[in-house]
Design a protein around this nucleic acid. Structure first.
Lengths: 251, 251
DNA sequence: TCAACTACGTAAACACCGTTCACTGACTCG
DNA sequence: CGAGTCAGTGAACGGTGTTTACGTAGTTGA
């Protein structure tokens, strides 16, 4: 059955062990504690052996970031699975709240993946020509955004008028990615249901969601927010409202 | 004239040297390169001598973050000095664009100050009961926000209606800080010109400005933005527009 | 002025780090 | 079986933060 040889099986097992221990160190003691020697100690090997699996510590951290992206995507997918297929608004709430919850529960991982400069880590999925559209986490957000678009006629005030001309080309590229995502789900749509103004609004929504979450993780709100959750929820309600969705009862 | 003794003069000079070299290392080679031994080498002393100035490397990094805040505030103040005292809209543009420009030009410093978890660095000004309102950078933003408020009747749609009830207390506290900032500038105002809805809007504006800048620094936009500046400017125009300011020609 | 004191800086040491290299020994395959 | 592959080892190198004991220059008070 298994084509893999004994050596290959042991290798994947060891590699999984390495990543698990590295993740644990990252979560519990921060990025600086993710040390080749500490990982090796936990796994039960010596530090130089890790070079049979990774080119360097930086390379290991990069792979770790990819793992984190994938796991986050899986967690958000799980959140989505419990929600009515047709209730797109609830899906948006679930993904955004899930993202915030995950970030607050795993600040070190959030920092590694979403607040590291390219030169200290590189992208999460550098194969896709410097766009993040290829990684797993981006996929989940794209899919929900796609469902949002496909399910709902957008209000007229999301026309292309307020979109800066310099952004037309970039937004058009993102528009194609979004449309392709929607079409992949079997819903046939074209540019007419997704004007550049809507693409721009989706981008601005990501700016706000990311901004809120990062500010909360890093404690950089201009004043002490004793309970940031209602602020996040009301921001989501506003974002959805601007896209023509009415308010939603809090799940 | 100078009350300081020779030893005290040498000390402040050495300390300034330490911070300057540490800053240079941070800017040029990133946080991990800010090494006690590297700093000492540049200054011309040995590493243990640094313990006469700082409790630990972490303590040094914390002080460094404070310096960065102060310098950023000075830079933004300089940007403001060349702008008409009465043109509040232009002042907002100047501060926000200055913040973005600084962040892009100094990503390592931005990361240290604005994208570090509290446990790895602590706040920039931890003396002010966990609020950032006390640091220099916050001061500049507060002052501009204060001028914005004092100079302009806010539109009616910034009423308190959409503000979540759970945020009333926190927003009221921030409202008092903002009003005190305005009053410090000699303009007498009270709560009537600054409803909680406006305070909330200012907070949301910070979320968007910070979100955009951080996404740009960390390369985490959902698609490749070939020229993010028009996007930032149009966001500022929208933020100001929502506060009742018309569009502004680009300086 | 001179002794007592303070405090900046040093060298040595410790335990840790990433990384390289020569080597062993178990596994794989013809 | 024999040759080859490769995960893992131990030793080493140069680097790190931090502590310790110590010297010595600057300061201070009598």
């Amino acid at each position: 059955m298994t084509e893999a040889t004994r050596r290959e099986r042991l290798r994947v097992e060891t590699e999984r062990d390495i990543r698990r221990q590295a993740r644990a160190l990252l979560v519990e003691h921060g990025r600086d504690a993710v040390t080749l020697r500490a990982i090796a100690r936990e796994v039960g090997i010596t530090a130089p052996a890790l070079y049979r699996y990774y080119d360097s510590r930086e390379d290991l951290l990069r792979r770790l970031a990819e793992d984190i992206c994938t796991d986050l995507a899986a967690e958000l997918d799980a959140d989505l699975s419990g929600i009515d297929e047709d209730d797109v608004s609830a899906q948006v709430y679930a993904v955004c709240r899930g993202f915030r919850r995950w970030a607050l529960a795993h600040p070190q991982e959030f920092t590694l993946v979403f607040a590291s400069t390219e030169d200290t880590l590189g992208s999460c999925a550098p194969d896709e020509d410097r766009s993040q559209a290829g990684d797993q986490f981006g996929r989940v957000f794209l899919e929900v955004a796609g469902r949002l678009i496909a399910s709902h006629p957008l209000p007229d005030d999301l026309g292309d008028d307020d979109v800066p001309a310099e952004l037309h080309a970039d937004l058009a590229a993102f528009q194609q990615i979004l449309l392709a995502t929607v079409n992949d789900r079997g819903v046939a749509v074209d540019e007419t249901v997704l004007p550049l103004g809507a693409v721009y609004h989706i981008t601005q929504s990501w700016v706000r969601i990311y901004g809120h979450v990062a500010l909360e993780v890093f404690g950089r709100f201009p004043f002490a927010v004793s309970n940031p959750e209602p602020m996040f929820d009301s921001m989501l309600a506003q974002i959805l409202g601007e896209m023509g969705f009415g308010h939603l009862p809090q799940p």
